[in-house]
Amino acid sequence: MANKHALSIVKMKKMKQEGVPLSMVTAYDYSSAQLVEEAGIDMILVGDSLGNVVQGEHTTLPVTIEDMVYHTRAVVRGAGNTFIVTDMPFMTYHGSIDETLRNVRRIMQEGHAHAIKMEGGREICETVKKIVQAGVPVIGHIGLTPQSVNQIGGYLIQGKDEQDAQRLLEDAKALEQAGAFGIVLELVTEEVARFISEQISIPTIGIGAGRYCDGQVLVFHDLFQYASPYRSKRFVKTYGDVGTMIREGVSQYVKEVKDRSFPAENHVFTAEDHVVESYMVNQRRRCTLHESSQNDY
């Protein structure tokens, strides 16, 4: 969009105060980034979910800093007027603060992201604080945290009892206090997500967290069933079946190549008659000279 400008974190907080929801979607390459920007998305997340939907991994754990830098740069080239957040991948912010800041620097300087996202609650708040003090905007991520899937025992709904709800609230408040400008709530019960959203001043972005967050985020491939086979998810609404369209399109292409109906006459380029005639005359002359020279031997 020619007249579109990237949001700032100040504008996002104002949108929360005014009750204007934020829209966010993942993107992993130049083309998808272009399309979602043209559609008017507020924010793009270059998620480590690329491990699943782009690389074919079973979890996000194998994703590296190099992967995130590469994909972020592609997305930034496609969506230069949209606020872009990049995931810090597994175990890139749990070592020393010097090592963490080196990884953050790569995302920001080499990838050209506007902000980073980090999974975790109170246990990462000191790190969040130091990153924010270094001038880098941070969005938190609590609830289901895919990088901890082995520790929490699977992809389980969070906030189902009072103790877990209290844990999530305390994590959210701690992240706000540490300087995070927003928090992703993943697979959190709607009631708990709503209460957390009311109790903090920074925006909450829900994914499977109900109707009352300050914004919503979904994975690009989920929006369009861009997978084979596609596994439906309760918290996802499908806005187009790209997977079926691609399969049917490629199948038709294969058929037409095999039966020679593609390319058709309207797909080819032809030379002017005099060019063809001149070319053929010259070719016949060369052939005649070649045969003559062969006979000399």
Rank of each mutant, 00 (worst) to 15 (best):
S31I: 15
H58S: 15
V276H: 04
L223W: 08
F235P: 01
R211F: 14
G182P: 05
R231S: 07
G243R: 07
D29E: 10
G78M: 12
Y230S: 02
R286E: 07
Y30I: 09
P229K: 07
G80D: 12
D171E: 10
R105E: 15
G210V: 04
A271G: 00
Y93Q: 07
F90W: 11
T82F: 13
E119T: 05
S148C: 12
G249H: 06
V76I: 13
T86A: 15
L169A: 03
S32N: 04
V188D: 07
G51Y: 12
K4C: 04
C125Y: 03
I183C: 03
M68C: 06
P62W: 12
V219F: 12
L187Y: 10
V53T: 14
Q158F: 08
L168D: 08
N266H: 10
E162R: 14
I44C: 09
R122N: 11
G240A: 15
T100K: 10
T270V: 08
V236I: 14
T59C: 14
E110K: 14
H58D: 15
G56A: 04
V69P: 01
A134L: 03
V10W: 00
E37F: 02
M245L: 12
T189V: 08
F181G: 10
D164P: 01
R260D: 05
A33M: 02
M15C: 03
A79K: 10
L7V: 01
V25Q: 08
Q17Y: 02
G40D: 01
I131A: 13
L61K: 15
Q216I: 05
D259A: 05
G56Y: 11
G19P: 05
E272Y: 01
M280C: 02
E123M: 13
Q163T: 09
V128E: 10
D273Y: 05
N3S: 14
E126A: 12
A178S: 01
T100M: 09
I107V: 15
P62L: 07
A2R: 03
V132K: 03
R194G: 08
T60A: 05
G121E: 11
P137H: 08
R167F: 13
K173E: 11
E162V: 13
D164M: 14
L61Q: 14
K16D: 03
